[in-house]
Design a protein around this nucleic acid. Structure first.
Lengths: 216, 216, 216, 216
DNA sequence: GATGAATGAGGGTTCATTCAT
DNA sequence: GATGAATGAACCCTCATTCAT
């Protein structure tokens, strides 16, 4: 104080929003949006609560910022992973799913944001978030269509539904692995979960499979 | 009932806990556990807040009561649906899944309780709830094993993983249908969702399907 | 119900108020008036909460009942203890103090009722209770006057003040012995406390003691 | 202060904890800990309820803060009052007792904190508070020992018990003077109470007094 | 007389948001 | 830009009291 300047280590203010988003992601994912307090986020970001309000109008806006930032990142990587359209559709699907669920970064970005507890409190934000999963299964569904054109898959396979259930099921299963220690019935090796489900899915799309339609 | 009178002060007190559980289910499902207030539950049940405390020690105990009551109901119906073990495994799986997801009662009991927002706040309760879904996919996995013994399914099919992804995926997809109006990308006919995913699942288990194991 | 009469063991209703008073004394002394709930009192008395309201209009009235009942009892015994006015005043004081503080019954009746927490909440009741201690030190003061007339005590001794401090000091010290285990600094043998303080008090009243009046 | 302005929003924030402690002391002493609400304390301190939680984690912590703050103050003054050890022990005892009970400040600090109603609810806090009175009578007992060594007091006098009863008795009597108006039997001039009891106490310690030990 | 389910007001605690510095 | 003290609304839980049976 009296000794004039106590320099803080130079940190470009430009980094602040990024740092806050990163901190918010961690805290929201760990404690849930509703339970996380802005004080926790502030502490994790190394700033004070008030500082957050320079960059985000409300707690809700912060969450929205986190969602948009990390979904954008995740889908950049996703598009990159399936860029090569000379590969068989099944290969591209494997690459895509693994990029999103196997890869640590990808999984965090997408899963951590399954911000539970937001559904009812901030329906708009939740719906904005849902565009992420929807976009992912749409990508998968398009690859299926592509594979049908190439003769890789049965023309009558319901890729739309398959893609949805595959993506949703994997998300939930992987999220629940957090509780594997306390609920042993839940435990399942993550790689087996991902690989087996993709192969089962691809198998069900492939030619040579008869799928009965007779209701029971 | 038989006396036709349903004036509030004539309701049999024996019904109270039931009525409160029913009201709590509605309110928790609509607003989420965290956002729902006991006043809302009380109002929905036609009693005052204090009355709830005659039957449940805390808000958490009330949630636990709801979960145990409705999971018990749901699984009674489920066991009944697959009672006849002379039927082919595939048929029993269809019956089971439809009972749990197609049937209004079953779906409500299981899905409404995907009590979001509880994960971080009441991990114990959440883990208790998870036993429900786990039990369901375990039932499916056992039917797969059964089908393998009868020669209905490929011996090498990963029924364990398939059952998990099927059940989880359907839960999440059906839950998200609540947002179908505001997020059109989400919309999907519930019956198609259920029927198609079950058939794809059964198709992937059935003999004659080759599932590649080659990693990409 | 339908099976006609389920006899309760015959307990004359006349005993009820007594039993409730006894239970209330125990519970109020143990938990404090404010913290004690009527449910606790009811349980201790072996009746239901509603039953209490047959005999006492309010919780406050119950406390008042307890106070009046037990102070009456205590003073009956006290009067009896000092009935013989041929004894020296000092002897009668010893008898009185020991009756009230040494005797288990007496101590309970008086001390247990130092119902803390009532001061501010029910000033009227508290003031009613205060008549007990006041009556006790007035009895002591009268015995001092008696002793003065007989030449046992110095005529200029301030028996009024001495009696007050003796009675109040003993009450508080004995009450605090409840905390002797957790606060060792408080511990003091109850008999020594009573006997020593009475003797010191009598010593200070007795002839031959010069008490300086010079202020410092 | 120096700037003469005392507008609320200009008070130095540093004063807040002090102001809150002061307000809490007043309110707790007036209404009792249990009955006092944080809103009352907040209003008395000129802040809102939430502000209290910046400085004290719980209502209990606030009470503890009040106790520790004011007991520290009171004993600073007490130590000062008996600093001069060349004075006779009797004189130092007079000074000590008057400092603690006669002096408005001293009395408030010690007496106001006889926080009734806390005994059962917060035993730990109550026991912490009891260290205050215990420390006071220990100081008196040490002065007695000192006086015995100097030949001022009888070697066989039970100073330990005498000090306890003097301190406890004065506390209770002075506290009860609050009710002197409504319960005339209680009324007693405070100075006479203090002075007379100290002199009686000193008289009972002094040489030349025979204290009988014969039980009756 | 007795029961115990139901009431409803009240208080401690949390935390997003504001704003003087 | 940044701070953090202060605000104030909201909610869970308690419990004396009532009253239909």
């Amino acid at each position: 104080m009296s000794t004039a300047k106590v320099l803080r280590w130079e940190r470009r203010p430009d980094d602040r929003p990024q740092e806050i988003l990163e901190a918010a992601l961690q805290v929201f994912a760990r404690d849930g949006y509703r339970n996380a307090t802005l004080d926790q986020v502030a502490e994790a970001a190394g700033v004070t609560k008030g500082a957050i309000y320079h960059y985000f109008d409300t707690k809700e806006a912060l969450l929205l910022g986190v969602i948009e930032h990390y979904q954008k990142l995740a889908f950049s990587r996703a598009e990159l992973a399936i860029r090569d359209d000379r590969l068989p559709a099944s290969t591209r699907i494997r690459l895509l799913i693994r990029k999103m669920f196997s890869d640590t970064e990808g999984r965090r970005d997408l899963l951590a944001l399954l911000v539970r507890g937001v559904t009812h409190e901030l329906p708009r934000v939740h719906e904005r978030w849902l565009l992420g999963p929807a976009r992912l299964w749409t990508m998968v569904a398009r690859l299926i269509d592509d594979g049908k054109k190439r003769g890789e898959f049965r023309p009558d396979a319901d890729g739309e539904v398959g893609a949805r259930v595959l993506v949703s099921g994997l998300m939930l299963q992987l999220m629940w692995q957090q509780h594997a220690e306390t609920v042993p019935a839940l435990a399942m090796d993550a790689d087996r979960l991902i690989d087996s489900s993709v192969e089962l899915f691809l198998g069900s799309m492939r030619r040579g499979v008869r799928v009965s339609t007779k209701a029971t």
